[in-house]
Structure formats: C-alpha cells, structure tokens
C-alpha cells in the first residue's frame, strides 16, 4: 500500500483562493474599464495597460531582486494597476503613470512586506504621491470630447451649478474626471458583483456613501451630484474595502466608512482640494489597527481583553 498523507484537520478547504478573489475584483473592475474606453477613447486603455504592466513587472522584479517567492500569479498587482489607472486623468503622460505604478508596488506594498502587509492602499497612496509630484498633469481634466474642462466638483466649489452636466450624464460618466471614476453605472455593476460574490461586505460602502449623502443633505448641497462626483463610488466600493489596509471586523468597517465619509465632506466643503476621497481613505488606513482593536468581538463565553 502506498504511503498515506498525514496532515492536521480540517481536510476540506473552500474553493475560494486569493487568486480567485483578485480575479473577481479584476472582473468587477472590467465594466468601468470598458466604460472608460468608450467615454475617453483608446488612450484610457493605454493608461490602464501601462499601469497594470508596470505594477506586475515591478512586483516580479522586486521579488526577484530580494529572492522572495514570486507572487504575481495572485493577481493583486493587476488589481493595483487597474485601480491606479482609474484614479488618473486620461491625459496623464505614460512615464508618469509608470512612475506611480512603480511607487505603488515597491514603496507602498513590497517595502512593507508584500500582499496583506501594507498598511496603506497602494493605488490611493501612489495617486497622492503623483498629485504632489505632478500636480499639473494630474489635474488636466478633459471632457469626453477631448476638450479640457473642469470636474463637476470644481464647478460645485466655484458655485457654477448651471455648467454642470445633467444627472443622466453624471450617471453614465459623460463628464470630466479620472478615467475610471466617472461611470457610476459600471462601478455599481462591479460593486454589486463583489457583494454577490461576498468578496466585500456592504458595511464600508454603505457607511461611506451614506455619510456623504447625509452630510451633503445637512449642508444644503445637491445630494445626487455630490454622490456621483469625484471618486466616491470608486473609492467606497473598491478602495476603502481593500483587505490589508481596512478593518476586518464588521463594526470596524462601519466606523471606517463613516469617518471616510466625514473626512471627504470636510475636504470637499471646507478644504483646499475639491475632492477628498483619496485622503479620507488614506487617513482611515492609518487608523485601521486601532479601529480593529476597539471593535474586536467578545468571544462566546469569554472575557473581553
């Protein structure tokens, strides 16, 4: 008789793997990617392609250099590349997009230990680095027809409500902005897919978007425009729900979502920048370990801490 395998229980494992989860996120991002090409043209595909390629290559290269196990097959670098591209204007010089991708993977992700160990979301942080480094090209917005224009949030800040696109154009993404953030319809389809596949839970997106809606209402702003402008939907479904940089407990997810919403509102209404989604997510990333500690469940029959 052949030798028996002896291992510790359990001997069954769920079919869900890290790679499968990341593949689901990629699939969920695809509608918005397709929408960005339709809205902004083929250059959107080029920017996404460059970001994904550089992210995957720099992960492979860094791990090769450090003699670490190669992890590019888990597809997490692909997700980072897509998300970073979604946060860039379509006109971004490609070398700048490549630089941001390199920073996302090497500085934010790998230097902190790779997948699961980074305390901040790589795409968000890289975007903020790029906004500081290339503030001109990072805010060179164009309308779908290629003519330079202001984003809806900038218009709202200036009080030029009459020049805003119609609500249906906002929903379909026919406005100036980052290439992956504009088409709310595509983002909602992707978000729903992630919820159905249980890759993410409803807590963070609902708390995040709900807080922005409530605060906009209280501050007398146009709620629907506030919700569909900027990177709110993209951020709430795809970035604030990032596993390694957000709380894993359910109450923690709610708290993170609410504070992301509040910080977004503070920056949008009273801050120097027209948009605050990226900053709010990064700030809450830093607080994640504390939120988790605060919201740890009391085990059944156990004493809390």
């Amino acid at each position: 008789m052949k030798k028996l395998i002896s291992s510790v229980s359990p001997h069954f494992h769920s079919p869900v793997t890290t790679q499968r989860i990341m593949l689901d996120v990629v699939l969920a991002l695809l509608p918005a990617a397709v929408a960005s090409v339709i809205i902004f043209g083929w250059r959107a595909a080029l920017v996404i392609g460059v970001c994904v390629a550089v992210c995957v290559f720099s992960e492979w290269g860094f791990e090769k250099l450090c003699k670490k196990e190669n992890t590019i097959t888990d597809l997490s670098a692909v997700v980072t590349g897509m998300l970073l591209a979604f946060n860039l204007p379509v006109t971004i010089p490609l070398w700048q997009a490549a630089f941001g991708s390199l920073a996302a993977i090497v500085v934010v992700k790998q230097l902190f230990g790779g997948i699961g160990q980074n305390f901040a979301n790589p795409a968000i942080t890289a975007r903020i680095i790029m906004m500081t480094a290339f503030s001109g090209t990072m805010t060179a917005w164009v309308a779908p027809d290629g003519v330079s224009c202001a984003t809806p949030l900038a218009l709202i800040t200036k009080g030029e409500m009459s020049s805003l696109p119609s609500l249906s154009s906002m929903f379909l993404g026919l406005r100036g902005g980052c290439l992956g953030e504009t088409c709310i319809l595509a983002l909602l389809i992707g978000g729903a897919y992630l919820l159905i596949k249980r890759v993410i839970s409803w807590h963070t997106p609902v708390a995040f978007i709900g807080t922005v809606a409530l605060m906009s209402l209280l501050c007398g702003k146009d709620v629907l425009y506030e919700l569909m402008s900027g990177g709110l939907v993209l951020g709430a479904f795809f970035m604030a729900t990032d596993y390694s940089s957000s709380p894993a407990t359910k109450p923690g997810k709610l708290i993170a979502g609410v504070f992301c919403g509040l910080i977004t509102i503070l920056i949008r209404f009273w801050g120097n920048f027209p948009e605050g989604v990226s900053f709010s997510i990064l700030l809450m990333n830093i607080l994640t370990p504390y939120i988790e500690r605060l919201t740890r469940a009391k085990p059944l029959g156990g004493v809390k801490r």
């Binding site: 869900v16 890290t18 888990d74 790779g114 699961g116 894993a248 469940a297």
Partner: peptide
C-alpha cells in the same frame, strides 16, 4: 499556503 491577505474571513 500563501500569505495572509487580511480578508477577515476567519474571524467572521
């Protein structure tokens, strides 16, 4: 076995 991605499935 691959690295923990901090998804929180174990605790939920």
């Amino acid at each position: 076995t691959t690295p923990c991605i901090n998804c929180g499935r174990c605790l939920t």
